[in-house]
């Protein structure tokens, strides 16, 4: 599957999304090339989560276009998503991973191998037979990432993956994400945690009220954002 043309860069072209009569995402355009970790930054209600869902295909844009480099993404997606609150099936840790693989059409020996690899890679081997819903919050998010990783995505979306975790679990997840980037997986995540954005991001997309107000390399953005909203956000002033 790796030898076929890459789905990246992803191009988001003048995409809007209207809900409840309001423009929740307002003519947003950007591209995601292969590699690196892009952070969607912004206060609550900026449209970060919606943008991720639009990219992943969970929502249809009201206007504009989302295109993958290889044209139609094909039957099997090569991008995966991890949600703010981990969605754990009422099954064992291993069965959670196996289920996602089955849904992607992977069966037999390959499914078992990929399951085993994901459990090892994310340190869940000992938990394999336990009910997923009895794991701690941090472990659940780790399983959610392992489950997504087993699908071998080129691009991984994460929606505020650590907002419900304690600092120790947060650090663990952040290390995992750095590892994924090092492995060559392109990561795009939303957060409203400035420190996290500083620690992880190569690039920042700053959203405010559904509009993309700044799109710059992370170092430049944190050195001195251009948009007044971004400056206010960095200064810790709540803006809505």
């Amino acid at each position: 599957m790796r030898d076929i043309a890459s789905i990246l860069p992803l191009s988001v072209d003048r995409v809007s999304f209207t809900g409840e009569g309001r423009k929740l995402v307002d003519v947003v355009s950007f591209a995601v090339p292969a590699g690196g970790l892009t952070v969607l930054l912004g206060p609550n209600g900026a449209g970060k989560s919606l943008t991720l869902r639009l990219c992943h295909g969970l929502l249809k844009p009201s206007a504009g276009e989302i295109a993958w480099a290889n044209g139609a993404a094909g039957r099997v997606k090569r991008h995966a998503m991890v949600f703010q609150k981990p969605i754990m099936l009422r099954r064992s840790v291993e069965a959670n991973i196996a289920h996602a693989l089955a849904a992607a059409g992977i069966s037999g020996i390959e499914r078992r191998q990929r399951c085993g690899a994901a459990l090892d890679r994310f340190g869940l081997g000992e938990r394999a037979a336990q009910p997923a819903r009895l794991l701690s919050g941090g472990e659940q998010q780790r399983l959610a990432i392992a489950r997504a990783w087993a699908l071998r995505p080129e691009l991984l979306f994460l929606d505020e993956p650590t907002s419900q975790l304690d600092p120790a679990a947060t650090r663990q997840i952040e290390e995992l994400l750095s590892g994924l980037v090092a492995e060559g997986i392109t990561v795009m995540m939303s957060t409203h945690d400035l420190g996290q954005a500083k620690r992880l991001a190569n690039r920042v997309l700053f959203l405010h009220r559904g509009r993309l107000v700044e799109d710059r390399p992370a170092a430049d953005f944190f050195a001195g954002p251009l948009a007044p909203e971004a400056r206010a956000f960095l200064a810790g002033e709540l803006i809505w």
């Binding site: 992943h56 969970l58 995966a80 949600f83 969605i87 996602a100 849904a103």
Partner: peptide, 25 residues
């Protein structure tokens, strides 16, 4: 309502989601 995001993410929508939902329920 609980599973929707994940199931749709892995491509299980409509009829294809039913086996998972019946089994987990």
């Amino acid at each position: 309502a609980e599973y929707r995001d994940h199931l749709r993410s892995v491509g299980l929508e409509g009829l294809r989601a039913i086996p998972t939902l019946l089994w987990d329920g």
